[in-house]
């Protein structure tokens, strides 16, 4: 039986006063059809006038109210309440106050190309889509900027520690939507290449959590294919893919030894000698494949016409 009073723990944080977030417990009367945003509004109106949180449309269209409930990212305007909720800000973004995160830095990543036509003519270079393509484009263009995909992205979280910067699923899904719609997609693909899509870990956290079910990980896969087909993908990833294809056609299974040689070159692979010796000592050093396996000719027969790079 549902209780009439909901116990809610809210993560509160004021950077000017608090060294770390504080967990504060509140009790809120449950109402029929109540969603998490209703709880926050109740608290704001009755008990906590300084509670920091954002909301706008309340119809799952604006993405403003994205937060975490019991660690899971949701749009609070449509998330039904449950017993023992803990409400926290999205992770991976700086907290401004309480449940408000700073989206500015990630938002600015769109700035170089947002609104541009990029065909040099100053005219809109969008193309007419075939009926079959519209549904896919429309789906991709329905991103509501809730930042949930970016907040759960492990590759984006690694940016803070230095090295090449990954632009994140939110930017890449928008680029894929633009590429699909442009008569001359190359400038957009260049932006995609600069966004380092190869740093995506293929973990599917963005696809799993997207409240609009837009499948950003698959959009990154699609951009990867477009860049690979145009020889614009970064050299390591290109060598990785090409090595897989070569191994499979030659010997059915991946030749792990050759993969490293294909990626790093004979000289470059020398840096792995300590690692290789360690694996040799533990009897797990992959051996290079020699000659064709029995099934290689079958595989060549069925795949040879499908290799779009050959």
């Amino acid at each position: 039986m549902q209780s009439e009073i909901l116990t809610v723990v809210v993560e509160r944080y004021d950077p000017e006063r608090d060294k770390a977030p504080r967990l504060v417990t509140y009790r809120v009367p449950r109402q029929e059809g109540m969603v998490v945003a209703d709880v926050l509004l109740y608290l704001y109106e009755h008990e906590v006038p300084d509670l920091g949180f954002l909301w706008e449309c309340r119809t799952r269209r604006c993405g403003t109210c994205a937060m975490r409930v019991n660690g899971h990212p949701v749009l609070t305007c449509s998330e039904p309440v449950r017993e023992d909720m803990r409400i926290s800000p999205l992770e991976g973004l700086p907290v401004v106050r309480d449940l408000i995160v700073d989206r500015q830095e990630l938002q600015e990543r769109l700035a170089p190309w947002a609104g541009e036509t990029l065909d040099g003519s100053g005219k809109d270079a969008r193309i007419l889509l075939e009926p079959g393509e519209i549904a896919h484009y429309r789906a991709l263009s329905e991103c509501i900027d809730c930042f949930i995909c970016d907040s759960v992205c492990p590759a984006l979280a690694e940016n803070a520690k230095g090295g090449p910067q990954f632009a994140g699923p939110r930017r890449l899904i928008r680029l894929e939507a633009q590429v699909q719609r442009r008569a001359e997609p190359l400038p957009w693909l260049m932006y995609a290449a600069q966004s380092n899509p190869s740093l995506c870990t293929r973990c599917f956290a963005c696809t799993e959590e997207c409240p609009r079910e837009l499948r950003p990980a698959e959009a990154i896969g699609s951009l990867t294919k477009r860049l690979y087909d145009r020889h614009e993908l970064d050299p390591h990833k290109t060598a990785h893919i090409t090595s897989f294809v070569r191994s499979i056609l030659r010997g059915a299974w991946l030749d792990e030894f050759r993969l490293l040689v294909d990626i790093y070159g004979i000289v470059g692979v020398a840096k792995f000698i300590p690692q290789a010796l360690r694996m040799l000592r533990h009897r797990k050093l992959p051996k290079p494949h020699f000659g064709k396996t029995a099934q290689a000719s079958d595989i060549q027969t069925i795949l040879q016409d499908l290799d779009n790079r050959s």
Partner: peptide, 25 residues
């Protein structure tokens, strides 16, 4: 034993038709 590498994420992204036929086999 006569199977083949799935092509992992590389093939299914960059050469989806190849990945489909290879794994169908």
């Amino acid at each position: 034993e006569c199977g083949a590498c799935t092509g992992a994420r590389d093939l299914i992204e960059a050469q989806p038709e190849m990945a489909m036929v290879l794994n169908a086999r």
